[in-house]
Design a protein around this nucleic acid. Sequence first.
RNA 1: GCGCCUGUAGCUCAGCCGGAUAGAGCAACUGCCUUCUAAGCAGUGGGCCGGGGGUUCGAGUCCCUUCAGGCGCGCCA
Length: 555
Amino acid sequence: MTEELKKILENAVGKIAGDLGKEIPDGFIVRLERPRQTGHGDWATNIAMQLAKPFGLKPRELADRIIAEIPFGQTVEKAEAAGPGFINFTLASDWITETVRNAISKDKDYGRVDSGKGRRVQVEFVSANPTGPLHMGHGRGAAVGDITASILDFAGWDVEREYYINDAGLQMELLGRSAQSRYFDALGRGEEAPMPEDGYHGDYMTEIAASFVDKYGDSLAQKPLEETVEFFSVETGRIIIEMIRKDLEEFGVTFDVWFSEKSLYDNGQVEPAMEELKKRDFAYEEDGALWFRSTLFGDDKDRVLIRTNGVPTYFTSDVAYLKNKYDRNFEKLIYVWGADHHGYVPRLKSVNKAFGHPDDAVDVLLIQMVNLLRDGKPVQMSKRAGTIITLREIMDEVGVDATRFFFVMRRCDSTLDFDLELAKKATSENPVFYVQYAHARICSIYRELEERGIALPSIDEFDVSLITDQTEINLAKAISKLPEEVEKAADEFAPHRIAYYATELAEAFHSFYNSQRILGVDEPLMKTRILLMEAARIALKNVLVILGVSAPEKM
RNA sequence: GCGCCUGUAGCUCAGCCGGAUAGAGCAACUGCCUUCUAAGCAGUGGGCCGGGGGUUCGAGUCCCUUCAGGCGCGCCA
């Protein structure tokens, strides 16, 4: 629909350029936008303002000349110059028929676009250390990552979701010693293996230790402590990862790949990555350590890759991991990180450049903090005091649907107030219910139709001439926006756009529903409205699928 | 000290690559159920887009500066 309009405008502009003997500037493209004001028609363009100077005309004058070249009829019903030089278009009502036909025939695929062109993209998210349960912040990252991935999939990308398990390094050893200590506690021999200074104290550690006792009795206490640390570390990590995996699965998030940091070392992928940096002269040895020349990329000092004592830093793994990702032929890499890691972004980008990859192949989504509100007051959380709120607690309290929706309701780079009371409310104040309710209402009408023995009409029975009410037109317009919203959300990695769009779509439906009846009107009109409603149901359903929120048939 | 994020209606936030009279939701107020789900709809009021400068036909949007809040600046992860 907009493609045709663009073509019409390109032709018009071309003809005028010819008449004037002027050139169209390089890189010029016709852009169409949705006017903010409904009174300004369906679409608008600012080409007259853009071309005024090169054409040597006043914007309004040029706008009038462009309009004079437009063939009215099939596509465009009305075009008028407005404001400083906009051209506003009202489309012929065909677009409504097209929208309804399109939605119903594509059904589950309605809203899919192909801006991704089948390119491979990896979204790596959550990637929490396997040292404890996921908390709120991880939850937001999980929702943002998962929904971003869904959006990209809908936009025609070939998407892989990946969880990077930080199972190498000192944290894991600390975890092992903590588990070991709890294990001895469980045997009543706590003094033999004291809890390390910064050990993991959570209740889950006690439970894990108990499971070791169940499984191994006191056999693990027979050997010297140092000999079993590794075992405790690996096994505890495995148990916690499984716990995390279950929580995420219940949260509606599943990964294609669980990638172990340790495997980079076990499979010898770290050394070659370091060698490549050295070969390209981005790494050098000094003072017994291996350094990355981050100063070449504006960092204030070079950064250590391999410490003097021979132990690699986390940065080392990340270099190897980045290389590994490219080896798997991804064209685009998306990292979802907590905003507290933002200082690390330039370093990752630097490595990316050092390897000779385009800068925009890597995108890092920084997720700001979540403030949990109960009774309108922030809930104080402290790791030290053990008062961390876990993702599981939130899911259990407010449900998966509301949790997911709330986590993507705001732009990622803005801190999020998560109001527990609001998330649980079953009123229109709560956007999740508002959207789901629209879907349930439609399904309710279907039940009524079934009872009255009325079948879903065929698309050919849609009669656009019967669509006269503004709420009907607004609903059709909202439905027609799904593909463009998906494209924009994918383009910007902005899942919140879809949450906003979902609300807008639901609003258009509720408004229509309240003002017009479906049953009890003349049959042709009833059929036309049923088809419009069916298109709305499909759009709502697909949007909820993208968000990973259920679409209830009854509420 | 340096860097990143944020600052828009009473509250929570949208605002796309600079465009028209800055938008939602909530809260407040007024209406709407004998008919498909009122968990809904319609309407009203509410603004120095943190402040100051600049860029230009045009700035909430871009640049500089300043103020306020948050978060980072290890051979920790």
